[in-house]
Design a protein around this nucleic acid. Structure first.
Lengths: 155, 155
DNA sequence: ATTGAAATGTAGGAAAC
DNA sequence: GTTTCCTACATTTCAAT
């Protein structure tokens, strides 16, 4: 198989591992009617070539005391490369910030922020986020309930 | 150890597994200066008690042809339990919708939508999302770049 | 690229301290 | 909680196709 294309078996393996990476090679091989060695070889390649970035444990956020998730829309004073990249660099250093995306539209960034509760969020907001330079507005929305939460891409 | 509290070792294990769940018990044991049997027992308990929900592979979304991520804010006509839960149930069935959260604020839901490109998003929007009943407005924002993207909670 | 078989390593359980 | 021992799997390599 060449280097730049995935075949049907590769996609099936990726689909399975996205849902459950604790599957053994044997289980995957059985599922796909392939040998264990083949599955092993494929997965090794998929990791080497960067299709699989990493294998992680997903935790129950409420059990680990992250009861409050906020999405915050941030607007900056200006959009010079300097201002944008300083903001990105600084905000990424806050552990509460799980995700930071630069966006199209009327604001500049979406942040996903995980804290234990509203007090902790407030503390983060006043003492960390609002101290960053060049912020014009921050508008925050809070998760009431999760109807769906999936890390698997539809492939 | 009792059932309802995690000690420092448990938290360390969770921290490690959130970052890299392909670590072996042996590697974790070495890192924490514990025996393999202890680590094994702890992880078993952490899974049984639901702290670890699952182990998954995270893929490179651009390599698997999901070049466009949208966040969509959805507002519904009314907020009866019936309307809310019908929307949640229907929207969760679309594979493009990776996440759906009910939110505080001026709109009702945030969706995270993964598609290959703007054409595919448009198709999803016109032929799937906009066909659901009781939707008043949908406002969409598109990811330009990812400054940070982490599934690990700050614990 | 795929396979079965062989070698090595890890998981998972149990016993004694 | 640790150590040791044990068995059953799982991973990894390899020669052959």
């Amino acid at each position: 198989m060449n280097n730049s294309e995935l075949d049907a078996t590769d996609w099936q393996i990726l689909r399975l591992l996205q849902k459950d990476a604790s599957l053994t090679n044997k289980e995957i091989a059985f599922e796909l009617n392939r040998s264990v060695a083949t599955v092993h070889e494929r997965i090794k390649r998929l990791k080497e070539e960067g299709y699989v970035k990493k294998i992680v444990a997903l935790l129950d956020r409420k059990k680990v005391n992250k009861g409050l998730i906020a999405f915050s829309h941030v607007q900056l004073h200006d959009h010079t490369a300097q201002t944008l990249s300083t903001f990105e660099k600084e905000v990424a250093r806050f552990p509460e910030v799980m995700e930071c995306f630069q966006m199209t539209g009327t604001f500049d960034f979406i942040l996903r922020i995980a804290t234990s509760d509203m007090d902790a969020y407030h503390d983060f907001y006043r003492n960390k986020l609002a101290n960053l330079p060049n912020i014009t507005t921050v508008q925050s929305f809070f998760v009431l309930s999760e109807a769906k939460s999936d890390t698997a891409y539809p492939i």
